[in-house]
Each structure stands twice: as C-alpha cells, then as structure tokens.
C-alpha cells in the first residue's frame, strides 16, 4: 500500500516535470542557440552548452536592420493604442452601462458584432480605404483601427454596472458633474478591470504581426515583430543563432513581465476569455 502510493506520487511528479519540460525546453533552446556560433548551430547531434557564450549575436541581430526604429515604432503604436482605447472605452462603457437612450440595444449589438470580426477578414478593404486616404505605411494605419475595443467596452460596462446606483446619486447630490462621476468614482472603482484590459491590449498589439505586415511597406513604420520576422531572409543562408538572438529581444521582456505579473496576466487572458 505504502509503496503503491509512493510510486503514484513519483509518477505524478515525473509527469509534471515532463510537462514543464515540453513548455520550457523550446525557450531554453532559443536562449542556448542565441549565444552559439554559426558552426555550433549546424552540428548534429545538437550542442547544449556552447563553447563560448557569444553575446555579440545580439548586437549582430540588432544591427542587421534598423531595429531601434522598429522598437520606437512598436512603442509609439502600442502606447497610442492603449491611450486611445482608454479614452474611447471609458465613456462608451459608461453610456452603455448607465443611460437608457433610443437604439441603445442596437448600438450595443453593433459593438458586439465587431468583437467577432477578425482583422484577417477586413484587411483588404481597409487597406484600400487607407490607400485612398494616403495613410498606408504610417503609424496612423496601425493605430486607428484599434483606437476602440469592443471587448473592452463590454467588460468595462459589466464592471460599471456593478457600481450601486446609490453611489451615483450621492455624487449627484454632491453636485458632481457626469464627467466628474466618471473619472473620480467610476474609473477608480473599475481600476482592476481597466488594468486587466490594458495589459491584454498591450500584449496583443505588442506582439501583433499580421496588421503591421499588411499595412507597412517601409522601415519607417514597421514594428518589432515584422522586423524580427524579416530575419528569416538574411542573405547567405539561414543563421539560426542570429534569428534566435533577435527573438530573444522580443520574447524576454514579455517573459520577465509574465514572471512578475503572472497572476494579473493570466487573469487578463482567462477572465477576458471566459466572460
């Protein structure tokens, strides 16, 4: 009986370790490759510990293209999206949560429909539209379509609805204007939801590859993921060590963020997925 139990426990722990390995090894392998020499990447069986740790791979990767420009573009685009989303979502969520007005349900349904339209479906017409506006290959083309977020409106509306009516009445008796009610009472109360949403939006747009790929044609507006993906086409054959070094630049900040804010990030994705 005892031995049986011990065996089960051992099996359980081994399987858990195996699971962790399945998910961690690729990242470890990425890190190992990123500091190898070219010759070490093309040996079989593979080398686990490189002879010398070549940090210059990162410099090589970074200098193989205008990566500083890409980084700046990524930062501009992502943060512009976050700020604009905050500015459009909060009033819209408040109106949907707290006012009754003509066609409110229809307009809300319209918002919810957008939730189900993937960018992969509409990139072609939007591309043509942007081309006629002359904003292709600019930051605007990467920011504008995401200046609002149906999902955010939906979530924040839920959380605004939970604020008791009494509180708003108290504020009205305190002579607070509607705007003041929003930013002094509603927004502070919905802070966890707002942080969750912003975190979710940040990761989504920081990582986004598809939209910048189709909307940009030059380095002046390309973002980091597009730049990193272009490392596959480096002249003179495939340079896995450089590619992995480039990807480390993209992945490590997110993984560090995940390490420190694991709880919130998981909550952001699971919560947004379930609700």
């Amino acid at each position: 009986m005892r031995i049986h139990q011990l065996f089960l426990k051992l099996l359980n722990v081994t399987s858990l370790v195996l699971i962790i390995l399945i998910f961690a090894t690729p990242f470890v392998w990425m890190a190992v490759t990123s500091v190898k020499s070219l010759s070490e990447t093309i040996t079989f069986p593979p080398v686990w510990i490189p002879e010398t740790i070549r940090f210059e791979n990162f410099t090589l990767a970074w200098e193989s293209g205008p990566f500083f420009r890409y980084l700046v573009n990524s930062l501009i685009v992502t943060f512009s999206i976050l700020i604009l989303q905050f500015l459009t979502i909060v009033p819209a969520a408040y109106a949907f949560a707290r006012y009754q007005f003509f066609a409110d349900r229809t307009l809300f349904a319209l918002t919810m429909i957008t939730l189900m339209i993937p960018t992969q479906l509409i990139f072609l017409p939007v591309y043509l539209q942007f081309s006629s506006w002359g904003i292709l290959d600019t930051h605007l083309a990467l920011i504008l379509p995401f200046a609002a977020n149906a999902f955010g409106i939906f979530m924040l509306r839920q959380s605004f609805k939970q604020v008791p009516e009494e509180l708003l009445e108290a504020a009205r008796l305190d002579q607070a204007s509607e705007w003041k009610i929003i930013y002094k009472i509603m927004v502070p109360m919905a802070k966890p939801t707002i942080i969750t949403l912003l975190l979710f939006s940040f990761i989504t747009h920081w990582n986004d590859y598809f939209w910048p790929l189709v909307m940009t044609t030059s380095d002046s507006s390309r973002t980091l993921p597009v730049g990193i993906a272009a490392l596959t086409n480096v002249e003179g054959g495939v340079a896995w060590h450089i590619m992995m070094a480039g990807n480390m630049i993209l992945v490590v900040p997110i993984l560090i963020m995940f390490f420190f804010a694991q709880r919130q990030i998981i909550r952001a994705f699971v919560y947004t997925g379930v609700k």
């Binding site: 008791p164 009445e169 108290a170 204007s177 009472i185 502070p188």
Partner: peptide, 24 residues
Amino acid sequence: MVFQNYALYPTMTVWGNIEFGLKN
C-alpha cells in the same frame, strides 16, 4: 441625503468622502 447603504465612495478616504461635495 444619507443612504440606506451609506453610499460612501469606496476609493476615497473618510476625508475625501466628506470633502468631495465641498470641492464640487
């Protein structure tokens, strides 16, 4: 007005709650 469930602003301190109306 004093409300049944007090309707205190949860994100403000006692001071902030009392001050809010005066500020407005």
